[in-house]
Design a binder for these strands. Structure first.
Length: 491
RNA sequence: CGGGGUGUAGCGUAGCCCGGUUAUCGCGCCACGUUUGGGACGUGGAGGCCGCAGGUUCGAAUCCUGCCACCCCGACCA
């Protein structure tokens, strides 16, 4: 294995691919487009899940689980929805295998054809709304606030670890409400949850916004999103929350009796974030030495590396190290004491840098003498000699500082990469040379959006919420516009 | 799904054009010893159906056909 990563400067996309594999997050599998998430990567995902799950529950949601398979007829009930997903569905057509007559192996048994084909869920709206019809009778059954953690399959042509895989893990929330305003409020509440998670846990600043018609979820009335900005200047949609109106309620006939005794269709939302967040996390903070993980999501927050010549030294160091481990565990800081003698300290340093461990403690004979340790920060690579006295407080504070620093750094980068432009020449220039978001007036038509995409590969990432209303002219057509929108090249 | 490229030990590779002893080298792995404050060194050792399946040939990593996987560039998408 080559020791050095390809640098971001030389080939950003290669850097990403190598990093994900070398840091032990994930690897490609024998199945086209499907990845294996390795223990270290899965540990990060579990931390994401734990936090999001807590936030969902705090906002009144419950978990449930719906089937992986969806009858073909369900999917076609909502016209826009089926059109959005039809091209990327895996379909189960048979339910049995048999030995080939010529002995060449196993073949699909042609006699075992399914009456109705089953779709491997690309998302679960249809099966869920078919179920909700039975669960909802009265306004008393509302709101219905359910989330599920699941895998879904979208048959992608070109895949990349975490960013776009044929199968991925996610959570999908599906809620039903008595009123339109309540449903809209729900999708906004979840958007806030996502933004808070992204910023406080992933240390990734995001812009909250609304999708344009062409980027909207198939079957939604309105799609809210959070958009992050990666270090190469490309935007990444990190989460979406949809106000579905009554589209699915009508398609699946989900009605309730109101207080006034009238039959009404319910109002719906759905929302999700996926393992794509892992890709966002990697591309927001990491550097040419490897991963940089925010302390709030790092599986190992502190690693202790002993430096010793003799067995006795190792024993003495271990004793001190174990004391530190205990103190840190009491503070619920995850710590690993790496006393493996098979690897030299220098090797371990490089390894934990590659894996993005926020803090590294080195402890050697000199430290034993002086009652100190060497503390190295992964985010800015600074090293400090610190007294062992009250070390746990120092580490706790430093972890918080790192979390904040990562966010600040990412925010600064993002702020420096939102550029207002007023001409199409500027638009192309910024896109080409500066990257990031381009804030420009747009005439609101799909045709213009498409034309710009064709010419520049940039799409409208979102119309920011609380956007400033200002008179202007469309950057492309010169037609009247009331506000700026954010364009960017995107993942 | 179109165009291009690549599959040889766990990883990275030489050999392929022009078929011919025992398939090359580095890293990693195992054993022993010396080492240990930024990816240590020495000695010895193990590990391969040369991506898979057919074919041509006395003989295939090498030539031919099909398939599979991965990478890059497009179209599509979270």
């Amino acid at each position: 294995m080559s020791k050095k990563l390809t640098t971001r400067e030389i080939d950003y996309s290669k850097w990403y691919n190598e990093l994900v594999v070398k840091a032990g997050l994930a690897e490609n599998s024998g199945v086209r487009g499907c990845m294996v998430i390795k223990p270290y990567g899965y540990a990060i995902w579990e931390k994401m899940q734990a936090e999001l799950d807590r936030m969902f529950k705090e906002t009144g949601h419950e978990n449930a689980y719906f089937p992986l398979f969806i009858p073909k007829s369900y999917l076609s009930k909502e016209a826009a929805h089926v059109e959005g997903f039809a091209k990327e569905c895996a379909v189960v057509t048979h339910y049995r295998l048999k030995n080939a007559e010529d002995g060449s192996g196993i073949v699909v048994d042609p006699d075992a054809k399914l009456e109705e084909e089953l779709i491997v869920r690309p998302t679960s709206e249809t099966i869920i709304w078919d179920t909700y019809r039975k669960w909802i009778e009265s306004y008393r059954d509302l709101p219905l606030l359910i989330n599920q953690w699941a895998n879904v399959v979208r048959w992608e042509m070109r895949t990349r670890l975490f960013l776009r895989t044929a199968e991925f893990l996610w959570q999908e929330g599906h809620t039903a409400h008595a009123t339109k305003s309540e449903a809209i409020k729900e999708s906004e509440t979840i958007l806030d949850v996502y933004a808070e998670f992204a910023e406080n846990y992933m240390a990734m600043p995001v812009i909250k916004g609304l999708k344009t018609e062409s980027e909207r979820f198939a079957g939604a009335v309105e799609t809210y999103c959070i958009e992050g900005l990666m270090q190469d200047g490309k935007a990444l949609q990190a989460g979406t929350s949809h106000f579905l109106g009554q589209n699915f309620a009508k398609a699946f006939d989900v009605k309730f009796t109101s207080k006034e005794g009238k039959q009404e269709y319910v109002w719906a939302t759905s929302w999700g974030v996926s393992t794509r967040l892992m890709g966002a996390l990697v591309m927001t903070h990491s550097d040419d030495l490897g991963l940089v993980l925010p302390p709030n999501l790092a599986p190992i927050q502190v690693v202790i590396v002993p430096i010793h010549r003799t067995e006795e030294q190792l024993e003495q160091i271990s004793e001190k190290a174990e004391e530190i481990v205990k103190k840190l565990r009491k503070k619920r800081i995850s710590v690993k004491f790496d006393d493996r003698t098979a690897f030299k300290p220098g090797w371990k340093f490089a390894e934990y840098e590659l894996k993005g461990v926020p803090l590294r403690i080195a402890m050697g004979p000199r430290d034993l003498e002086n009652g100190t340790v060497e503390v190295a920060r992964r985010d800015n690579l600074e090293k400090n000699i610190v007294s062992q006295e009250k070390i746990e407080n120092y580490l706790e504070d430093t972890l918080e500082e790192i979390q904040q620093n990562l966010f600040d750094k990412a925010l600064k980068y993002r702020e420096n990469h939102i550029t207002e432009v007023n001409t199409f020449e500027e638009f192309k220039d910024v896109l080409e040379n500066t990257g990031g978001f381009v804030s420009a007036h747009w005439d609101g038509t799909i045709a213009t959006e498409e034309k710009i995409k064709e010419l520049t590969k940039a799409t409208i990432r979102c119309v920011p919420l609380n956007n400033k209303i200002e008179e202007g002219k469309c950057v492309f057509t010169g037609a009247k516009s009331t506000q700026r929108v954010l364009f960017a090249k995107a993942y």
